[in-house]
Amino acid sequence: MARAVILQIKEIFYPLLAAFGVPANLMTIVILSRGNCGLSKCISAYMMAMAVADLLIMVISVLLYQTFGFQFPNSFLSYTAVCKFILYSGFVNLDMSAWFTVSFTFDRFVSICCPNFKEKYCTKRTATTIIVTAFTLAYLKGVPMFFSYEAEGVIDNVPWGCRTTQAVYTLPAWSVYSWMQSGSVVLLPFALMMLFNCLTVRRILLANRVRRGLRSSGNESQSDPEVKNRRQSILLLFTISGSYIILWLTTVGSFAATRMSSTVFYQGDYSNPGYIATECGYLLKNLSSCTNTCTYAATQRKFRGELKNVLKFPWTYFSKLVKNKKEFKTNQ
């Protein structure tokens, strides 16, 4: 019997995603840590936090769980304790990534729409406080996830595999927790980013209209540096939050459809449309964890320059090593 198409896609997609996403996020962290991209300290802090969360998603969810776990089903990754930790960490890292993106979007909203509050809020100290708070809350909210899984079986007194406990399906408390967690990771961040972006666009359009009117009355024909700077800022904002929104659309749609119709569990039916939609949502939201590097490279000139330096570093270092060796031999 032929394997389901969605399983074949996952078998190819996730290794390729890990091969690109892990080094891409590592390079982003290295470049941002150098502080040469011309970004404010608060923006750099949010971007660094998003890169770290995305790297954790790539390593734990994509590489360990979806790739190694799929290719090596009987490895140490199948120990119940390891499996539960991977599932817990994967969920928590998605939570962090979502709320770090929301925090960045809100920071840009304040910077553009609330000039009186900007000086107090858009600081590295505030960004660090929000990042640490989001990190702590994500790990605390996910603690019950450990108790939602049990071993599939015991071999030589060693628990193997993970499956959802029966209590998750029967106890009302688990149903409430599931709704709250899913809403806080999927629906609420999605809605908040849509709201902040809409308000930011509205503010920018009004400000640009007023500024163009003032400049036309002053008969100034040269380009407006304020509008140019604002355009660069919103370009970064909209590419980051916009790609997140687009790639999470399928997850939001499948979440709403399955929860409203109470068809969350598919019992191994890989041809079920709900299952396929849910898995496609997983594919796309994991893809969103490696797009920020491409976003930064496309929108930030200094980031592109730093990226080129990082990529050229091994060759440059090797060339210097060879040159120094030749000079040493010549001097002898």
Rank of each mutant, 00 (worst) to 15 (best):
A2K: 15
A2T: 13
V5P: 08
K10E: 15
F13R: 03
Y14T: 07
L16P: 06
L17I: 05
A19M: 06
N25V: 03
N25C: 01
L26C: 14
T28H: 02
I29A: 07
I31G: 06
I31D: 08
I31E: 01
L32G: 03
N36D: 02
N36A: 07
N36C: 10
S40D: 13
C42K: 12
I43C: 14
I43Q: 14
A45Y: 07
Y46H: 12
M47L: 14
M48C: 02
A49Q: 01
M50D: 01
A51D: 03
I57S: 02
M58H: 09
V59K: 03
I60P: 06
I60T: 12
L63V: 03
L64V: 10
T67N: 04
F68R: 03
F68G: 08
F70I: 04
F70M: 13
Q71W: 09
Q71Y: 14
P73T: 08
S78Y: 15
A81S: 15
V82H: 10
C83F: 10
C83V: 09
K84R: 10
S89C: 14
N93P: 00
L94N: 07
S97D: 01
F100W: 04
V102I: 08
T105G: 02
D107L: 09
R108I: 03
I112L: 13
C113S: 11
C114K: 15
K120L: 03
K124Q: 12
R125V: 13
T126Y: 10
A127P: 01
T128F: 05
T128K: 13
A138G: 00
Y139A: 07
L140G: 04
M145A: 13
M145L: 15
M145H: 13
F147N: 03
S148H: 02
A151P: 06
E152C: 11
A167S: 13
A167L: 12
V168Y: 11
Y169S: 12
T170Y: 14
V176G: 00
Y177C: 05
S178R: 09
V186M: 11
F190R: 09
M193H: 02
L195R: 02
L195G: 02
N197I: 05
N197V: 00
C198H: 03
L199Q: 00
R203G: 04
L205V: 05
L206E: 04
N208R: 12
R211P: 04
G213T: 06
L214S: 03
L214R: 14
R215G: 03
S217A: 12
N219G: 03
N219C: 07
S223D: 10
S223H: 09
S223N: 10
D224L: 05
D224S: 07
K228R: 13
R231I: 00
S233T: 07
F238T: 07
F238A: 05
T239M: 13
G242S: 04
G253F: 05
A256G: 04
R259S: 10
R259K: 06
M260A: 11
V264A: 12
F265N: 12
Y266M: 14
Q267T: 10
G268L: 05
D269L: 11
P273E: 06
G274W: 09
Y275V: 08
T278P: 01
E279F: 06
L284R: 09
S288V: 01
T291Y: 00
A297G: 06
K302W: 01
K302V: 05
K302F: 01
G305V: 01
K308E: 08
V310I: 14
F313K: 15
W315V: 15
Y317L: 15
K320L: 13
N324R: 14
E327N: 12
